[in-house]
């Protein structure tokens, strides 16, 4: 009997690269970086097996600051590079770092396809509802009417809801967190890593230079319990400082109700993240403040075979059925003749 050599014990510091971090002081990205670095040693994966891949934008600088393998690619294409890497190297833990512009605008198509294929990746989308790196233009998640230098009279675009889009693409893991709640963030990232398949995590992140306070009205500590709702598997959907409000479904319409006066916990929707049908998760994802509390947590975690493992299975199956390929036999396939 042999025992596997124990992995060296790593700490957060082992995941800090020698590059100076260059985000603006006060940027929400620092918190996400810190939580990501903190999580890495917990995963029990050799450092050399971890790869961070990003596109373009403020968030996409993150791989430079991680002392792992990293690839800072081109705008919107990180999911494609990650798909090629993970499909050819299923042994690696591959993380995609993107933002609301990179992932939902220029790279929106790839995001849909990487999610529907269920490639085993963790995709973290930093949503600050603004273009930061190009100095403050409205993004696909900016609210309609947003005044920026490129929309002096207010933007005309209706915004996209990232989690709803991911669920529309039938993503098997969809979660939402906020950069300022470090506990929630790190546990959400850990859940995303544990999920086998394409894991999509939207992180509300403040851009204190170009869109300061974008999420304050529901993420400020004072109002957060009343204006967000933590979704937890198997639990009824209750929120509020006094835990006295809840969410029930009236057909396909969510309703906020006050507990009491004949309404009890048993009337509320019980969150089931494992449903194969993403409809209820989509209903939750689409709830927005002020009509509804904003849902935070894991909206969906449904297991099904991943793209990279199915691809590997096809190769193994072909070899099992037809034997390993014989190149010279293949060259001489079909009708051949000999010239003496």
């Amino acid at each position: 009997m042999t025992t596997a050599e124990p992995l060296p014990v790593l700490t957060r510091k082992d995941f800090v690269s020698d590059q100076e971090v260059r985000w603006c002081p006060g940027c929400g990205d620092y918190a996400i970086l810190a939580q990501t670095q903190k999580l890495m040693p917990e995963l029990n994966i050799p450092r050399e097996k971890i790869v961070f891949i990003s596109g373009i934008g403020c968030s996409s600088r993150l791989p430079y600051y991680m002392n792992t393998y990293g690839f800072h690619s081109i705008h919107g294409r990180a999911p494609t590079i990650a798909t090629g890497l993970k499909s050819s190297r299923p042994d690696l833990s591959v993380w995609v770092i993107t933002g609301d512009g990179d992932g939902l605008s220029i790279g929106g198509n790839h995001l849909i396809h990487v999610l529907r294929r269920n490639v085993d990746l963790v995709i973290v989308l930093f949503n600050n509802r603004i273009y930061g790196l190009t100095k403050g233009q409205y993004s696909p998640t900016s609210e309609q009417g947003k005044i920026t230098k490129t929309s002096p009279l207010g933007s005309l675009d209706y915004p996209v809801n990232a989690c709803s889009l991911a669920l529309g693409a039938n993503a098997t893991f969809v979660a939402r967190s906020i950069a300022t709640d470090t506990q929630h963030l790190v546990s959400t990232l850990e859940r995303a890593h544990q999920h086998k398949g394409a894991s999509f995590v939207e992180v509300f992140q403040n851009c204190n230079v170009y869109n300061d306070g974008a999420f304050d009205e529901f993420t400020d500590k004072a109002v957060r319990p009343d204006r967000t709702i933590a979704v937890e598997h198997g639990q009824p959907l209750i929120f509020g400082k006094e835990r006295n409000r809840g969410l029930r479904l009236n057909g396909v319409t969510p309703e906020v109700v006050d507990l009491g006066n004949g309404i009890t916990e048993s009337d509320l929707l019980v969150h089931d993240e494992t449903l194969e049908d993403p409809t209820i998760a989509s209903i939750l994802a689409r709830m927005e403040y002020p009509e509804f509390p904003v849902p935070l947590g894991v909206l969906r975690a449904f297991q099904k075979p991943t793209y990279d493992e199915l691809m590997e299975d096809q190769v193994q199956e072909a070899i099992a059925k037809q034997g390993e390929g014989d190149l010279e036999a293949l060259f001489a396939e079909g009708d051949t003749w000999v010239v003496d």
Binding site: F71, S73, R77, T80, I81, T83, G84, S88, N109, H113
Partner: peptide, 20 residues
């Protein structure tokens, strides 16, 4: 891999080359 578009196709090829 039959990619979703030409950009994804070369992206995946680059990712595979990065992986060896």
């Amino acid at each position: 891999l039959q990619a979703e578009d030409e950009l994804a196709a070369i992206g995946a090829a680059i990712g595979a080359a990065f992986g060896g």
